[in-house]
Simulated scan of single mutants.
Amino acid sequence: MQNFFEWFNNFFTNPTTHTIILIVMIIFSALFLGLILRRREKMETQQIAEIGLALALATILSEVKISGFWAQGGSVTAASMIPIMLIAFRYGGKTGLMVGVIHGLIQLIIGPYVVHPIQLLLDYPVAFGMVGLCGFFQKNKVLGITVGLLGRFLMHFISGIIYFAQYTPEGWNPVYYTFIYNISYILPEIIISIVVFKLAGERIIEILQTESVRK
């Protein structure tokens, strides 16, 4: 097991790996841009308004947080991912991915922690874009919430191994440390998001769908 983690750490600190990740990010960005251009004309006024409101609420909720324990970024928020997830459940995973990426860019603007261009992509647009994956799990929304936030965790995890390994405490394996560091705030986010969704999120979706039918 120790050899595996050493290989894992060496793989992600290899310059060749950085190049591969950059290429993947470029491809991802191109596909995302194509998705936006394809969907732009299909969006209705109500959908645009709901997306704008969701982004505003997500941004406000992201500022209600516990963050002092994570020196290199990360926080437990007041269910700030719920507005993004509601859009994803309401309009599907593709729209969820798009809105998640936009939210990631907003987070980059209001609270950047950047040490490298690829790290910027991984920790902001790509990581938050992963939250939109929940929209592909319409029949099991709790599973969708879990998958979306674990996708975000994975991006932070990879970024941490590559760009923040130097902050690993003496005697710790960088992979172990990065895993614990990131899961320590993502796991509470998963729990909070599921609880809030079950308490209010499902009802909000029902209300919005009812209003859409009436119109």
Rank of each mutant, 00 (worst) to 15 (best):
residue 7 W to C: 00
residue 49 A to W: 06
residue 174 P to N: 09
residue 59 T to I: 12
residue 3 N to D: 11
residue 190 I to L: 11
residue 132 G to L: 11
residue 82 I to S: 05
residue 118 I to R: 02
residue 113 Y to V: 03
residue 214 R to K: 12
residue 64 V to F: 15
residue 8 F to P: 03
residue 16 T to V: 15
residue 25 M to C: 13
residue 63 E to Y: 06
residue 73 G to T: 01
residue 67 S to A: 13
residue 189 E to Q: 14
residue 53 L to S: 12
residue 103 H to F: 15
residue 155 M to A: 14
residue 169 P to K: 09
residue 24 V to F: 12
residue 105 L to C: 13
residue 201 G to M: 02
residue 209 Q to D: 10
residue 211 E to D: 08
residue 147 V to I: 15
residue 42 K to I: 05
residue 159 S to D: 08
residue 95 T to A: 05
residue 165 A to N: 14
residue 100 G to F: 07
residue 68 G to E: 02
residue 166 Q to I: 08
residue 54 A to P: 14
residue 184 S to Y: 01
residue 121 L to F: 10
residue 121 L to Q: 01
residue 66 I to C: 07
residue 7 W to V: 02
residue 123 D to A: 04
residue 28 F to A: 04
residue 83 P to Y: 14
residue 170 E to A: 15
residue 22 L to D: 02
residue 212 S to G: 03
residue 209 Q to V: 05
residue 17 T to Y: 08
residue 60 I to C: 08
residue 115 V to S: 08
residue 156 H to C: 02
residue 179 F to N: 01
residue 41 E to F: 09
residue 184 S to C: 07
residue 178 T to H: 02
residue 129 G to I: 06
residue 145 I to M: 06
residue 43 M to F: 15
residue 79 A to E: 00
residue 174 P to D: 12
residue 93 G to I: 04
residue 103 H to I: 03
residue 28 F to N: 07
residue 143 L to Q: 14
residue 159 S to V: 01
residue 210 T to Q: 14
residue 72 Q to A: 13
residue 148 G to Y: 09
residue 84 I to R: 10
residue 118 I to S: 08
residue 110 I to L: 10
residue 169 P to D: 01
residue 176 Y to R: 00
residue 5 F to P: 04
residue 2 Q to L: 14
residue 169 P to L: 03
residue 92 G to Q: 09
residue 142 V to K: 09
residue 188 P to H: 12
residue 196 V to Q: 06
residue 59 T to D: 07
residue 21 I to Q: 05
residue 178 T to D: 06
residue 31 L to E: 11
residue 93 G to N: 04
residue 166 Q to H: 15
residue 135 G to P: 11
residue 87 I to A: 04
residue 215 K to T: 08
residue 173 N to M: 14
residue 88 A to G: 09
residue 77 T to D: 01
residue 184 S to F: 05
residue 114 V to C: 01
residue 81 M to D: 01
residue 210 T to F: 06
residue 215 K to A: 00
residue 130 M to I: 00
residue 163 Y to I: 05
residue 176 Y to E: 01
residue 71 A to Y: 00
residue 163 Y to S: 11
residue 108 L to Q: 02
residue 134 C to W: 09
residue 126 V to Q: 01
residue 49 A to S: 15
residue 85 M to A: 14
residue 92 G to L: 10
residue 118 I to K: 02
residue 190 I to Q: 02
residue 73 G to H: 03
residue 138 Q to G: 11
residue 47 Q to R: 11
residue 58 A to N: 11
residue 160 G to D: 08
residue 113 Y to F: 10
residue 79 A to Q: 05
residue 14 N to L: 09
residue 67 S to R: 04
residue 84 I to A: 03
residue 195 V to A: 14
residue 61 L to N: 10
residue 164 F to A: 09
residue 61 L to M: 13
residue 199 L to C: 13
residue 140 N to P: 09
residue 198 K to I: 08
residue 212 S to T: 12
residue 84 I to C: 07
residue 57 L to E: 10
residue 127 A to M: 03
residue 28 F to E: 00
